[in-house]
Simulated scan of single mutants.
Amino acid sequence: MINITDFKENLGLSEIPVELEKLIYFQNNISSFENYSQGFGVLIDDKSGLQSWSGDENFLNRLIPFAQANGSGSFYTIWNDASNQPLNQMPIVVFGDEGGVHVVAENILQLLHLLTYDAEIWVDFDQAYFYKDKNSYEEREDLNQYLKWMKGDYRLNQIEEPDELIKTAQEKHKENFEKWFGQYFNED
């Protein structure tokens, strides 16, 4: 169970996006960690995963880790892109446990839509994508409740082509993110 006050204090924020606050409510009261989308769960993060990339305060202060992305250690962050937009309009970036880092959604609502696919994100050096093996796929226990919640609150149905949404987000934000990220970590 995630306490919203503790979640905000941990991140040093007075407010979090309403979409994220509603998701925490959903996870706490209707479902549970990893039970509504494979490998996903909101958590309180101490930024230790980010610190393995860079300890620079400017780097750490612009990234807000908030969720596990898959069962192998990848995680999602909100990237404060310095556009002066509200946090709920900032890009979402996945940091892969194998080393890849990619913009995956234009904002938190798009990430919530991606989660309706109910598959773990795969993150390698060149790309991030969702893969669902039709032969071994097992729907999450609370997926239907999550889909009803998304339809009721956001009028969004289950996504059928999640990688198209990722592609659109990357077209919009990848170049700026890589330029910013490259200041702290050069992949070459």
Rank of each mutant, 00 (worst) to 15 (best):
N3Y: 02
N3H: 03
I4W: 01
T5I: 12
D6N: 11
K8T: 01
K8N: 06
L11R: 00
L11M: 05
E15Y: 05
I16C: 00
E21I: 04
L23Q: 07
I24E: 01
N29L: 13
I30N: 02
S32T: 15
F33H: 13
Y36M: 00
Y36L: 00
S37L: 01
S37D: 00
Q38V: 05
Q38C: 07
F40I: 06
L43T: 12
L43Y: 14
L43I: 13
D46A: 07
K47L: 06
K47E: 13
S48Y: 08
L50V: 06
S52H: 14
D56K: 04
N58G: 08
N61H: 06
L63H: 06
L63G: 08
G71P: 03
S72C: 11
S72R: 11
S74D: 06
Y76Q: 10
Y76M: 13
I78P: 05
N80E: 13
D81E: 15
D81I: 15
D81A: 15
A82H: 11
A82S: 15
S83W: 06
L87W: 00
E98A: 14
G99Q: 05
H102I: 07
Q110D: 09
L111W: 00
L112N: 02
L114P: 02
L114D: 05
Y117H: 11
D118A: 02
D118R: 04
I121C: 13
Q127E: 15
A128S: 10
Y131P: 04
K132C: 12
D133C: 04
N135A: 14
S136R: 08
E138T: 13
E138A: 11
R140W: 00
D142E: 10
D142P: 07
L143D: 03
N144H: 10
Q145V: 02
Y146R: 00
Y146I: 02
L147Q: 04
K148S: 15
M150L: 03
G152E: 07
D153W: 02
R155V: 09
L156N: 05
Q158I: 05
E160Q: 07
L165C: 09
K167G: 06
A169R: 07
Q170C: 10
E171A: 06
W180P: 12
G182P: 13
Y184A: 12
E187G: 14
D188M: 09
D188S: 15
